[in-house]
């Protein structure tokens, strides 16, 4: 039997200069939900370096096209956009077969979720959830509708900036990431305690870039958003 350590050569650490703290009082829900004791360091072993693997067979035909996967009797209302980019590791190498799940509000700023009571209309032709798997170059692509801003109860006159939620599985369980994509030039970003909870130097990594190259003539505006995940220090193939 091969050594259990043969491919377990370690994993990049969580870079706490890039991630928000566990308690950020301006975002009020963190106060009773974030742990107060220091995290206990855990060296990466097989448990952490492995993780579920989902391939293209996990997808249905329109999973990556939110302009179609919730359509009942027409097209969703709003500005059609393309979100595309690459999933990379910290050495800039492509992460193929990464599962990306997304969910978002509709153009009016309303979620399909039963708990969302914002007095903005639901869109019978927009569900707001989708997924895709990256190709061999780590590339992904979603068609969707630009989400609207919406109010939330954190403080007086609080509004979330336009955003899309993303959930990613990379190489192993330590690559796991849930994040949010924001849009350039949004005036609500400077007022949003969730965005501002991110270390200042890392915030720009959460903002997609408008791209005329990714824009489809006569159809949809394009935005590029690359995502960098933690990964193994060396891959089994590199030995």
């Amino acid at each position: 039997m091969p050594s259990r350590e043969s491919s377990a050569t370690g994993y990049t650490r969580r870079d706490w200069g890039s991630h928000p703290p566990l308690i950020h009082p301006d975002y009020k829900s963190t106060v009773l939900r974030g742990p107060t004791k220091p995290l206990v360091p855990l060296p990466a072993g097989l448990t952490e370096m492995t993780g579920p693997v989902y391939g293209h067979e996990a997808l249905a035909p329109h999973d990556a096209d939110l302009t179609r996967n919730g359509a009942r009797n027409g097209e969703p209302v709003g500005e059609r956009i393309i979100i595309t980019g690459r999933v990379l590791d910290e050495r800039g190498r492509a992460v193929p077969n990464a599962l990306i799940e997304i969910w978002q509000a509709n153009a009016a700023g309303r979620y399909v979720h039963a708990a969302d009571q914002h007095a903005a209309p639901l869109d019978p032709n927009f569900f707001g959830g989708g997924r895709c798997v990256t190709d061999q170059d780590g590339r992904y692509r979603f068609y969707t509708i630009k989400p609207g801003a919406y109010p939330w109860p954190n403080h007086f006159n609080a509004w979330r900036p336009n955003h899309i939620h993303l959930s990613l599985f990379g190489t192993g369980f330590l690559s796991r990431l849930v994040t949010q994509l924001y849009f350039p030039g949004d005036p609500l970003l400077d007022l949003d305690p969730i965005f501002l909870g991110t270390p200042a130097a890392a915030r720009e990594r959460l903002i997609a870039r408008f791209s005329i190259d990714a824009t489809e003539e006569g159809f949809a505006l394009g935005y590029e958003f690359d995502i960098v995940l933690r990964g193994p220090l060396s891959t089994p193939m590199e030995g």
Partner: peptide, 26 residues
Amino acid sequence: FKQTPSQTVGPYFAYGLTAKQYGYPQ
């Protein structure tokens, strides 16, 4: 190539990530 920052999953993940459990059509 620095790590993309984490953000909260928020209150509305159910229909995106756990749709079947919560009875959403996905």
